[in-house]
């Protein structure tokens, strides 16, 4: 095992994702502890310029036509080759779609233990100790690995580092010629009628709303407040609200002045999209729901009682 800390760079159309800078922030810190380097792994086809300015000591740039788009198979194989060659102390991968496609596979291929959903990582001698967020965010696990480790990291866990002039090394790609995965298309959603990222007040509904017909209760509150209704993933998956209203990891990141979370448990993937809201009020009958850890105010009263009562009081106040 070496001392270097590896980071998988995520980039789309030449631009490096914000999450990568967060990983580099942590990698620099860990590298200072381990006495190694922070090394960014850039898998690309004609996007070497993405290496410029990364806050890393070195960049390993692997170029191959199969790396033009994100092909999971190609990424896992390319990373496995880098790990086999360099044996880093730790490899940090964001828990994004890309990360979920790479981290576990890399662990299986390279035979290196993986701690998933990390929100904290420390080195202690030969041990790596990480905090992993599991059970829908209801529990944390303190996990130790003796020796080299891979960590997949929850967005927003570490302060980003940007700016640097890393030493860029080009590395020959191996094993990427016979893939069974190929790229067809990239589809960016059409702009919708409502842009929830631009709204100041969101009344956001989760599975606790229990049915499409009940969305009206949230709509009435949103109308009274002059806001709009947004939602957690199960609500948009169920077709109760359009996809453009989804808040979270695979939806929109919002930062409204007021976010009322109604029947939303506060899973990490939801919190990723709204934890920065200025004022968060949560209505959830489960006192242990993780949403209460980020909310400023909360109630365990039933949403079907609170929503109508609140709408009525706000309407009365507005017309007063």
């Amino acid at each position: 095992m070496g001392n270097d800390i590896f980071v998988l760079v995520e980039h789309t159309q030449g631009a490096v994702d914000a999450g990568t800078h967060e990983l580099l922030g942590k990698a620099r810190e860990l590298a200072a502890q381990s006495g190694g380097r922070a090394v960014a792994c850039l898998l690309h086809s004609g996007a070497r310029a993405a290496a410029d300015g990364l806050a890393a000591d070195a960049v390993l740039a692997v170029e191959h036509p199969a790396l033009e788009h994100f092909l999971p198979e190609a990424y896992v194989k390319a990373m496995a080759a880098l790990l086999a060659e360099h044996e880093p102390r730790a490899t940090l991968i964001a828990n994004t779609t890309v990360g979920m496609d790479v981290a576990g596979g890399l662990s299986a291929r390279a035979g290196v233990p993986l701690v998933a959903y990390c929100t904290a990582i420390d080195l202690d001698g030969d041990e790596l100790v990480a905090t992993s967020q599991v059970f829908g965010g209801k529990l944390n696990a303190e996990v130790a690995v003796d020796g080299a480790a891979i960590c997949s990291v929850v967005a927003g866990s570490f302060a980003p580092a940007e700016g640097g002039s890393p030493d860029v090394q080009d590395v020959a790609a191996t094993g990427l010629d016979d893939l069974t995965t190929s790229f067809i298309a990239r589809i960016v959603p059409e702009v919708s009628d409502v842009d929830i990222t631009a709204e100041e007040i969101l009344v956001s509904v989760g599975r606790g709303i229990a049915g499409e017909d009940n969305i009206e209760l949230a709509q009435e509150l949103a109308d009274a407040l002059g806001g709009v209704v947004s939602a957690s993933r199960p609500v948009t998956d169920g077709g109760w609200l359009p996809k453009a209203r989804q808040v979270g990891k695979s939806g929109q990141k919002v930062k409204p002045k007021l976010y009322i979370a109604v029947g939303i448990s506060g899973a990490p993937e939801h919190l990723e999209g709204m934890a920065e809201a200025e004022l968060i009020i949560a209505i959830n009958t489960d006192e242990n729901a993780p949403i209460f850890d980020v909310a400023h105010y909360g109630t365990t009263e039933d949403l079907f009682d609170v929503l109508p009562a609140l709408t009525e009081q706000i309407e009365a106040a507005v017309s007063a």
Partner: peptide, 21 residues
């Protein structure tokens, strides 16, 4: 084997739990 050891599992000690109404 996973190569990982769970030392402890715990409910997050939130520094800023919501004020319950």
């Amino acid at each position: 084997s996973t190569g990982t050891t769970v030392r402890r599992l715990y409910a997050p000690e939130s520094t800023s739990h919501a004020e319950m109404l």
